[in-house]
């Protein structure tokens, strides 16, 4: 009896986690706003760490939490800021995907 309860709870957890991950990935890949995409990617990395724990791979989970969520996010944000700075100097002309102007202030505070 106990085993069945545990099994169904785990399966429910699996399905929730997988659906959330897929939705997040879809959203971050299709949203128009690059800044939003980067933030969603950070949360996606944290969910991946959860998935690694579920897969009984704690080593990978530790590395993912530190690297995937903690380091990739700042890397993307600083690159975004650098690109926006370049564009503000009127050198970036083909930017259609990120409506970055209203986000410049946010990133500089971040």
């Amino acid at each position: 009896m106990d085993a069945i309860v545990i099994y169904s709870i785990l399966t429910l957890f699996d399905i929730t986690l997988v659906l959330t991950m897929l939705w997040l990935a879809w959203y971050l890949l299709s949203t128009e706003d690059i800044f939003k995409a980067v933030v969603l990617f950070i949360s996606f990395g944290l969910l991946m760490a959860l998935a690694w724990v579920r897969m009984r791979a704690p080593d990978v989970a530790l590395a993912e939490a530190a690297l995937g969520a903690g380091l990739t996010g700042p890397l993307f944000l600083s690159a975004l800021r650098r690109m926006n700075r370049t564009r503000k100097g009127e050198r970036r002309l083909d930017s259609n995907e990120n409506r970055g102007k209203d986000h410049n202030t946010e990133q500089e505070q971040a």
């Binding site: 704690p58 080593d59 989970a61």
Partner: peptide, 22 residues
């Protein structure tokens, strides 16, 4: 003996470096 190692430790050190750089 448990989960951990050079990569995880190095990642934390790198994160500390990023924090100081920011």
């Amino acid at each position: 003996h448990l989960a951990g190692g050079a990569f995880q430790g190095g990642a934390i050190l790198g994160a500390a470096g990023v924090l100081m750089l920011v």
